[in-house]
Write a protein that binds this DNA or RNA. Structure first.
Length: 864
RNA sequence: GGGCGCAUAGCUCAGCGGAAGAGCAUUCGCCUUACAAGCGAAGGGUCGCAGGUUCGAACCCUGCUGCGCCCA
């Protein structure tokens, strides 16, 4: 056992060294053959091409806290790390790199390009893994997975085949979200809607009595109009339904149709219908058998022959409006006109609805099952309020477009034959050979593979020991902002592929990390925090504690540098408390002595309450409360009171000192263990020094011992604290320097039941014993029983003392008035519960006793 | 446009039916040999506004205002 600790904690010197030891000893490696009950968390895989931001730091801190506690509780824990391949984002990065040297992926060809992406994956993914180590994540590195791994790819193919055979995957020509920059289809959740400024243009179609005015924000798509639609009950247009009108600039004649979905109050009540370039129009087109006319190519450039051919959609818009104006067809224009516009979540390009042939998942039965699993309680969402959000999503899910026009990802396992055959190939099947067969060029949405994560990472479709032991996983920890991405997808796939067995028992949601003013972090705002920066300056523990301390379930966490600094200070406080304890011979060896002082019994009693509370807060994912409880116990109870009370005892020596050394060891041992899940490094360092044990990582989790709860000791110490605090308050008000010893006589300690603690009180309040020549210059009534007579060695500040007493009197008088008012109210006496009435009576009595005491003290003051 | 949520000390947040709390910031005094990344003390709030329910409302209900988020 070492006793030499420096006076300041230097995280940089211990963190990386400790982490490597933990990993090297295999503390985080899960054993599927273990007899212990399992506890599993799969990490929501970060995007391989990104880096860990402070939001990940929060997410990982929570997961680590959960898993470390479970490990200490004796569970066979598995926290499985990994990353997803982030199809679009990763391909974009590598294409950008290629573009810098003037190349495109087509110059390289598919195979070489994919090889290039793997190189980038090694580089970028490595950085993320390094960040996780710095944070202290107790993940099982031997089971790290990547969505593009062979095993996970096999899982993807297996599920695809099963769904294909079950008719849940189909190919169709539909309107999908298309990114004209990424040149791929997107799913609904990869589109971000923002309110943008655009224009609303009203255009007259047709002439004379047949003329009809349509309003649109997308004039350029009029080239592809194949109808005009009005509401069937709209009297203004009833006579026109069934007639045709000439489409300007094209000479084509298009029908006027009646459709329930037209909003008569929008614009003129008549809308142009462009089935190939708008999802709603597509639906109208389906209902009325309208042709679909695609007028743009994949880059959103006008592709119909004529004067606008070759113009980008945003160039075509003013050009077409100008041409219409020249014909006198522009009836009205509103600019700016704010309306919702979809953007590619990866590159922010405005999404172009595009009619194309894609693969889809029929989500109806899957989403139903995903909703039911939560409704019937098999999966719990924490905090429960957020379940509403989940239902809102799964109960209104559209079919999911899963094909992506990319090269980086899982290639769709479908082969097309020379005679139009379509064959889906399972993992152990040979693709059809022969002339004319070719595989689908597209890859699957990344979420198709990350949705399988809770079981594909455990070896599925093989029936591995890991799968048997660790599935279903115990908890999924993620932000509410990606509830739809993660939870919904994993639920659908898990329930489907694992025979109805849910992927996790509990989903616990945290919020987003914001800056000190509650503002969202954004690069453009310049308030983004790099967790590594904080780890380097304040330590991983301080960063973790700062995040966990703000983590109230489901709500956002505002953090600042000061907040993190405060957490660093807390760690240092712990450090020094342990340092003090060790300098004074604290020990964990041997049984707790049977004979303990009141103060020792008090701190042990407090420890039991704290242990029980903290445990309960952990169970409820109340990390902010875990931190708050331990922070105050450590700082207030242990450091400010217990250690100060222990000092004179330790100095005096003897059996009392031995007992206190043992209790001190006991308290710190447990405190460090309780804190370890949140701040693993500093607690390990201190615990090793204090106990000489092997590691706190595997130390047994503290359990409250009811027999050690001692109400009498708690009451006694509370009285002692009140006396000391009152004396300190008097000294401070009187301007007596903290170092200045004051002679005093303490009366009434026996009545208050703390006569045994006189020397402790003198020690904490810095009072010397009164000699024969003692002459009090002030008398302090600190409670109705205890009076302190002090010789302040001079005249006391009567004005300050009077002000202090007047303040106390005002508070007591207010309390008295409030209690009297309640007790004078017959309705209160009659209807309030007995216990409440009794409590008010007690408060009144206390207030009145205070008033008497204060009045006496005021009278005793010199009038000058 | 539809839905959800929030409004409590200067800032960030707890509290959600029976005495207004914490951290940081602020003020005053201290290098009191574990810790100045510290110690002791103090100030600061008609709990967004207006009604209602209740013996009693920051807490429950209604409306309003102002923010935020999700979906379209």
């Amino acid at each position: 056992m070492t006793t030499e600790l420096p006076s300041q904690y230097a995280p940089a010197e211990v963190e990386q060294r400790r982490y490597e030891t933990w990993v090297g000893k295999g503390y985080f490696t899960a054993d599927p053959a273990s007899d212990k009950p399992p506890f599993t968390i799969v990490i929501p895989p970060p995007n391989v091409t990104g880096s860990l931001h402070v939001g990940h730091a929060l997410d990982h801190t929570i997961q680590d806290a959960i898993i470390r506690r479970k490990r200490m509780q004796g569970f066979e824990t598995l926290w499985l790390p990994g990353m997803d391949h982030a199809g679009i984002a990763t391909q974009n990065v590598v294409e950008r790199k290629l573009a810098a040297s003037g190349q495109s992926r087509h110059d390289l060809g598919r195979e070489a390009f994919v090889a290039r992406v793997w190189e980038w994956k090694a580089e970028s993914g490595g950085a993320i893994l390094g960040q996780m180590r710095r944070l202290g994540d107790s993940v099982d590195w031997s089971r790290e997975r990547f969505t593009m791994d062979e095993g996970l790819s096999r899982a993807v193919q297996t599920v695809f085949k099963k769904m294909f055979d079950d008719g849940l995957i189909y190919r169709a020509n539909r309107i999908i979200n298309w990114c004209p920059r990424c040149l791929t289809a997107l799913s609904d959740i990869e589109v971000e809607h923002t309110n943008d400024e655009g224009e609303l243009v009203s255009i007259r179609y047709g002439d004379g009595a047949n003329a009809i005015v349509v309003a649109t924000t997308r004039a350029e798509t009029m080239l592809g109009d194949t109808a005009v639609a009005v509401h069937p009950d709209d009297e203004r247009y009833k006579h026109l339904v069934g007639t045709e009108v000439e489409l300007p600039l094209t000479g084509r004649r298009i029908p006027i149709v009646a459709d329930e979905h037209v909003d008569p109050s929008f614009g003129t009540g008549a809308v142009k219908v462009t089935p190939a370039h708008d999802p709603n129009d597509f639906e109208i087109g389906q209902r009325h058998n309208l042709p679909s006319l695609t007028v743009m190519d994949e880059r959103a450039v006008i592709s119909v022959p004529g004067p606008f051919e070759g113009l980008d959609r945003f160039e075509a818009r003013p050009a077409i409006v100008a041409a219409l104006r020249a014909e006198g067809r522009i009836v009205a224009e509103k600019r700016p006109y704010e309306h919702a516009v979809g953007h590619c979540s990866r590159c922010k390009t405005t999404v172009e609805p595009r009619l194309s042939l894609q693969w889809f998942v029929n989500t109806t039965p899957l989403a139903q099952a995903a909703g039911d699993a939560v409704r019937d309680g098999r999966v719990r969402i924490e905090p429960p309020e957020l379940a509403k959000r989940y239902f809102a999503w799964v109960d209104n899910m559209h079919d999911w477009c899963i094909s992506r026009q990319l090269w980086w990802g899982h290639r769709i396992p479908v082969w097309y034959g020379p005679d139009g055959e379509i064959v889906c190939v399972g993992p152990d099947e040979e693709p059809p050979a022969g002339e004319g067969w070719r595989q689908d060029e597209d890859v699957l949405d990344t979420w198709f593979s990350s949705g399988l994560w809770p079981f594909s990472t455990l070896g599925w479709p093989e029936q591995t020991p890991e799968l048997a032991k660790f599935y279903p996983t115990s908890v999924l920890v993620t932000g509410y902002d990606i509830l739809f991405f993660w939870v919904a997808r994993m639920m659908m796939f898990g329930l489907y592929a694992m025979d109805g067995k849910q992927p996790f028992d509990v989903v616990t949601l945290h919020g987003m990390v914001r800056d000190q003013y509650g503002k969202k972090m954004s690069k453009s705002f310049g308030n983004v925090v790099d967790p590594l920066d904080w780890i380097e300056r304040f330590g991983a523990d301080a960063t973790r504690f700062a995040l966990a301390r703000g983590a109230n379930p489901g709500s956002d966490v505002a953090v600042s540098e000061e907040w993190t600094q405060g957490s660093r200070n807390f760690n240092n406080k712990l450090w020094n408390a342990t340092r003090f304890a060790m300098l004074n011979g604290a020990t964990i060896n041997g049984e707790l002595p049977a004979e303990l002082s009141t103060v020792d019994r008090w701190i042990l009693s407090r420890l039991q309450h704290v242990t029980a509370e903290v445990d309960q807060y952990f169970e409820a994912f109340e990390f902010a409360k875990v931190c708050d409880t331990l922070y105050h116990f450590a700082w207030d109870d242990v450091c400010d009171w217990y250690l100060e009370l222990a000092k004179p005892v330790l100095q005096a020596g003897g059996p009392a000192a031995d007992a206190t050394r043992r209790v001190l060891g006991e308290v710190l041992d447990n405190l460090l263990k309780l804190l370890h899940p949140i701040v693993p490094f500093v607690t390990e360092e201190l615990w090793l020094a204090l106990t000489g044990g092997e590691t706190i990582v595997l130390a047994p989790w503290p359990v409250a011992v009811p027999a050690l709860i001692d109400d009498a000791a708690e009451t006694e110490v509370a009285t002692l604290q009140k006396v000391v605090t009152e004396i300190r308050r008097f000294r401070s008000d009187q301007g007596v320097k903290p170092t200045q010893r004051v002679t005093a006589r303490l009366d009434g300690l026996d009545v208050a039941g703390i006569v045994a603690h006189e020397s402790l009180i003198r020690s904490l309040a810095r009072l010397d014993a009164a000699g024969d020549d003692f002459a009090a210059s002030a008398t302090l009534a600190v409670s109705d029983a205890v009076t302190v007579a002090l010789d302040t060695r001079g005249t006391i500040d009567v004005k300050a003392e009077r002000a202090r007493l007047e303040k106390d009197r005002a508070a007591a008088a207010k309390e008295q008035a409030q209690c009297q008012a309640k007790l004078g109210n017959e309705a209160f006496i009659g209807k309030a519960p007995e216990a409440v009435v009794t409590k008010i009576k007690e408060r009144l009595a206390a207030a009145e006793a205070d008033l008497t005491r204060i009045a006496t003290a005021l009278e005793a003051l010199p009038t000058a």
